[in-house]
Structures are given as C-alpha cells and as structure tokens.
C-alpha cells in the first residue's frame, strides 16, 4: 500500500513539474482561428452536420457486443458441446437476418 502511495506521489509530482515546464503560451486571436491558407470564416466552427458513418457505427457496436457474448460461450462450449453450438448458431442466425435486413434497407451504402 505504501509503495502504491509513493508511486502515485512521484507520478503526481512529475506531472505537475512537466505541466509547469511545458505550459503552452496562450493562443492569440489569429491563432485561435482555423487555418484556411490565409482566409477566414464568417461563422463559428460549432455546427450541426450529417455524420454519415452513423449507421455503420451502430452496426459495428451491435456486432462488437455479439463478440462479447461469445467469450463466456467459448468457456461453456467445452463442457456442453453440441447443445451450445446449436444455441450459438440460433443466436448468430437471428443476427444475420438483421444484417440482411439492414443491407436491404441500404444502411451500408455511403451517402
């Protein structure tokens, strides 16, 4: 425990010293503006735009969660054998139907 506290204290000290040494200069108004090769913008850069990768991101998260279910399944699979195989097959089958549906709806098309 005391070692942990010592390491944490040393790390905090090192961070504080490096932050004090490497403190950047405050940005002036021209530096705070975006770089347009000498040009300037009329409005602030905070804006609403169409995030075109959105549907793909959602599909990615769905399949990532599916992988998370497969880790505990892989442990049980050794003991259960064919029954676990069939269960995972049903799970993946249902997901695949969803994937095909999304494909038909055109969510994988970049637009």
């Amino acid at each position: 425990m005391s070692h942990l506290v010592t390491v944490a204290a040393i790390a905090a000290f090192a961070f504080a010293v490096s932050a004090a040494l490497a403190r950047p200069l405050p940005a002036t108004a021209p530096q705070a503006a975006p770089f347009f090769g000498g040009g300037s913008a009329e409005t602030h850069a905070w804006q609403r735009y169409h995030f075109r990768a959105y549907t793909m991101t959602l599909v990615f998260i769905a399949f990532e969660m599916e992988m998370m279910f497969m880790y505990p399944w892989a442990v049980v699979f050794v003991a259960e054998g064919g029954k676990a195989m069939a269960e995972m097959g049903m799970f993946l089958g249902i997901l695949a139907i969803g994937l095909l549906y999304g494909w038909r709806e055109g969510v994988f098309r970049w637009q």
């Binding site: 975006p34 347009f36 090769g37 000498g38 040009g39 300037s40 913008a41 009329e42 409005t43 850069a45 804006q47 609403r48 735009y49 169409h50």
Partner: peptide, 12 residues
C-alpha cells in the same frame, strides 16, 4: 444542416 461560409486561400 448548418451552412459554414469561409474563404480559403490565397496560401492554402
């Protein structure tokens, strides 16, 4: 969506 007007150049 928001329209963002800017001038780019002459040294882009």
């Amino acid at each position: 969506l928001d329209a963002y007007t800017m001038r780019v150049g002459p040294f882009a």
